[in-house]
């Protein structure tokens, strides 16, 4: 199977200019690859840098050093050095990031939020709506909520809308930051099946899961993030 992600010698250090220029070295010498059909789980204690690593992969954080190659169509794009419009293009078609938090857009209905990624990929409106309905139903969002903007939804409902939106258009590379946190068992199972389906469809997934059960059922491989943690700054 082909590598969809290659991380080469990545380091991340935060410089806190307004706190006396304190330097926070979080990751160092991070290297690994992820193949199509794998779900790689990042393991390590709180504060070790798991979320930081996912955000680096997404281009949301800037690498201090190293390269992050993501296969986009038939070539590798270095997310660490690509210009913004190229990163956006890779995100539109290849790379997605799933957290437990929905960024609520004012006035947009749950149905439209879920359908949006399909529309952005050129799927026609009625097909996109139909698939969004199926996805919302699958995640047990009551039908009476579909036409409403999620601003007033409960935390768990918003989280499930976010998952529906994230999995409606599976991308070749998917980054998951605790998507199942605080979900009940039934919905957690739905998410695990969604992950498995993506994997079987040939996606490469990198995930963080605090829940032991989810981790064991979703993971095909583990990495201990601790092995990459930078030594304490002097």
């Amino acid at each position: 199977m082909t590598d969809l992600v290659r991380v080469n010698s990545v380091a991340k250090e935060f410089v806190l200019h307004n706190q006396g220029g304190a330097r926070l070295a979080v990751l160092d010498h991070v290297s690994f690859a992820v193949k199509a059909g794998e779900c790689l789980v990042l393991h390590g204690p709180s504060g070790a840098g798991k979320s930081t690593l996912l955000r680096l992969l997404y281009g949301n954080y800037k690498c201090t050093q190293g390269e992050i190659l993501v296969r986009h169509h038939d070539r590798f794009v270095d997310i660490a050095s690509a210009d913004p419009r190229e990163v956006l293009e890779v995100r539109r078609l290849t790379l997605s990031y799933v957290s437990q938090f929905l960024r609520v857009i004012p006035r947009v209905s749950a149905l439209d939020i879920v359908a949006a990624p399909l529309i952005a990929r050129g799927v026609d409106f009625s097909t996109a709506q139909k698939r969004a309905q199926d996805m919302l139903a699958r995640l047990n969002i009551p039908q009476r909520l579909w036409a409403l903007a999620p601003a007033t939804f409960s935390g768990g409902e918003q989280q499930r809308v976010n998952i529906a939106r994230s999995f409606i258009a599976i991308t070749p590379v998917m980054l998951l930051d605790e998507p199942t946190a605080s979900l009940d068992a039934q919905n957690r199972d739905v998410v695990i099946s969604l992950i498995d389906e993506a994997r079987r469809a040939g996606s490469a997934l990198v995930g963080i899961f605090h829940d032991e059960t989810v981790r064991e059922r979703a993971a095909t491989r583990w990495i201990d993030i601790h092995s990459f943690t930078a030594a304490e700054a002097a």
Partner: peptide
Amino acid sequence: QGLTDQVLDDPQHAYTQLLTS
């Protein structure tokens, strides 16, 4: 300057850090 979410979530310059904090 850079990708909007990157500049807001991982600001590099002292002034941007002040602005986002």
